[in-house]
């Protein structure tokens, strides 16, 4: 916006929080910040007011590489037709233990 050229310059960050040790970081939302340090501070204040996290990643949204919805089907097709990657693909008699 012309009356606010400065604010428009704050980049968007995607925020990921590790809930506790032993868990993956999980995406929780986004925020705008002038730089990385501010992104982390704001992420702490917005997304972890009740001990929801022990670690935060803030990633510039324009640096995230994402699969595009248009190529969705072919993109994930290689994993869809490989049923032999799942344990249920293999028939084992019920009386064989621990398998």
């Amino acid at each position: 916006m012309s009356d606010e050229p400065v604010r428009a310059g704050w980049p968007l960050y995607e925020v990921f929080v590790r809930g506790k040790r032993g868990l993956n970081h999980v995406h929780v939302g986004s925020l705008h910040a002038a730089d990385d340090e501010m992104a982390l501070r704001h992420a702490r204040d917005v997304y972890t007011r009740r001990n929801e996290g022990v670690s935060i990643w803030a990633v510039r949204a324009d640096l995230v590489a994402a699969s595009s919805p248009a190529e969705k089907d072919p993109f994930f097709a290689p994993s869809a037709d490989k049923v032999y990657r799942h344990p249920t693909f293999y028939d084992i008699p019920d009386d064989v233990p621990h398998l």
């Binding site: 604010r7 428009a8 925020l31 204040d45 917005v46």
Partner: peptide
């Protein structure tokens, strides 16, 4: 908390292709 709720929701709105500053305006 209410400020936080506003920010969660602006974040959700922004995924629809609108701009947060524009919403405030």
């Amino acid at each position: 908390d209410e400020a936080g709720h506003g920010l969660y929701l602006y974040s959700a709105a922004e995924t629809l292709g609108v701009d947060r500053d524009d919403l405030t305006q």
